[in-house]
C-alpha cells in the first residue's frame, strides 16, 4: 500500500543525499582521524620539526663559511636563524594540531 510511509522514506533519502552532496563539495571538512590519535606521534612530529630547522640552518652556515671563507660568522648567524626557523616550524605544527583538536571536539559535540 502506498501511503505517508513512502513520503517519509523519500524525505529521509533526500536528507541523506543532501548530506552526501555537502560532504562531496567539501563544505564540511571531514575530521582527520589518524593524525594526532596518539600523543607520541604528535611529539615526534614536533621534535623532528625542531631538529630539522636547526640542522638546515647550521648546514647552510657551514657551507657558506666554506665557500666564503668567513668562518665562523655565517655558522653563528645561521645557527640563530635556524633556531628561529625551528621555533617557527614548531609553532606552525602546534597550531595545526590544536586546530585539529578543536575541530574534532566540535565534531564530537555535534555527533
Amino acid at each position: 500500500m502506498k501511503g505517508p510511509g513512502d513520503q517519509e522514506d523519500l524525505r529521509s533519502l533526500e536528507v541523506r543525499l543532501e548530506a552526501a552532496r555537502q560532504r562531496h563539495r567539501g563544505e564540511q571538512g571531514k575530521p582527520r582521524r589518524l593524525i594526532d590519535s596518539n600523543g607520541a606521534a604528535a611529539g615526534f612530529r614536533v621534535a623532528v620539526d625542531l631538529i630539522s630547522g636547526l640542522a638546515v640552518g647550521v648546514a647552510i652556515g657551514i657551507v657558506l663559511d666554506y665557500w666564503l671563507g668567513t668562518s665562523p660568522w655565517c655558522l653563528i648567524l645561521f645557527f640563530f636563524l635556524g633556531s628561529g626557523a625551528a621555533l617557527m616550524n614548531v609553532i606552525r605544527t602546534a597550531k595545526s594540531l590544536e586546530a585539529e583538536r578543536k575541530r574534532r571536539l566540535e565534531e564530537g559535540e555535534k555527533g
Binding site: 620539526d49 640542522a55 647552510i60 636563524l81 628561529g84 626557523a85
Partner: peptide, 13 residues
C-alpha cells in the same frame, strides 16, 4: 631568512 630556512627544512623533516 628565518622563513627561507624554515621552508628549506621541509624536505628534511
Amino acid at each position: 631568512p628565518i622563513e627561507v630556512v624554515s621552508y628549506l627544512s621541509r624536505p628534511i623533516s
